[in-house]
Design a protein around this nucleic acid. Sequence first.
DNA 1: TAAAATAGTTTAGAGTATTAACCATTAATC
DNA 2: GATTAATGGTTAATACTCTAAACTATTTTA
Lengths: 152, 152
Amino acid sequence: MNALDSSAEALRQAVEVFWDVFPPLWQRIRAHIHQTARERFGVSVEQFHILRHIRRGQGSVSELARVKNISRAAVSQAVDALVARGLVSRATDPRDRRHIHLALTESGQALLEAIFDETRQWMMRLLAPLAAEEVATLTQAMALLRKVEEQQ
Amino acid sequence: MNALDSSAEALRQAVEVFWDVFPPLWQRIRAHIHQTARERFGVSVEQFHILRHIRRGQGSVSELARVKNISRAAVSQAVDALVARGLVSRATDPRDRRHIHLALTESGQALLEAIFDETRQWMMRLLAPLAAEEVATLTQAMALLRKVEEQQ
DNA sequence: TAAAATAGTTTAGAGTATTAACCATTAATC
DNA sequence: GATTAATGGTTAATACTCTAAACTATTTTA
């Protein structure tokens, strides 16, 4: 087996492991947020993600639709619900009146922080058994994934 | 800062990075599968995941519902569609006639393999720029996550 | 044997997605 | 400068997937 083969083999292996590890992990995190967000804060997982994206600075319907890979219509409807609940505000951009700028209201910010706090604590408990080097490995791996994502 | 504080801080950091890296990555993989599975093979992402779980040996409605954290009713409906398309078979267990054993048909197996092949190639292209040690780090990290998951 | 538990399905309704058609505004083109 | 094209967003009709609740069938338990 030459070098190319073996590196391709390692890659293939990594992809296989990915399918073993990730979907259930994500499923579980999602289920936790579903519980927390829904039962304690009255928002759905989808709404949580929209709030999260707005906080990250994705402040328009089109941008949200792009990063979430869903239609603008779907985002528009989701935002409707959040505006109706007073968690998000819409403001027309005076310099280009087609744009409507989305932002978290104070109560939206507070709610999102509360969900994040809860979830962070839960995840920290989940990862607590890991040794310091193991946590470092995780952090490194995520940095690599970020690089992979950005490079595209 | 004592040792406990600093390790807690590292954990918190890891969790923060997680939220930066993962959701978009997963979103992107999901979008790719959505395209591939839907356009080229005519199954939804959800159906793909059901097929995947059945292949992994989760061979009953209740078990699927448990691992996917959804209701049995939802699984039952999803399975209906897959059976109607000839991708999955139902067979009553003669030893406990309440159980209905789910299995991939040949065409279900072939379809799932085709989607996997396509996706694997795509993911390998995505990860191709990484160096060998970097791939190793990823694999290690995933092993750690698996451990975390199982331990619970 | 009667009651409880388990496995699965059906039905009615909610939530979230899509596509297509639309309005308003801005940019490009002739 | 007027017309056309492109962009941002919403609305309406519809599809898909989920849930809860009620149901059937079967097995376990008390």
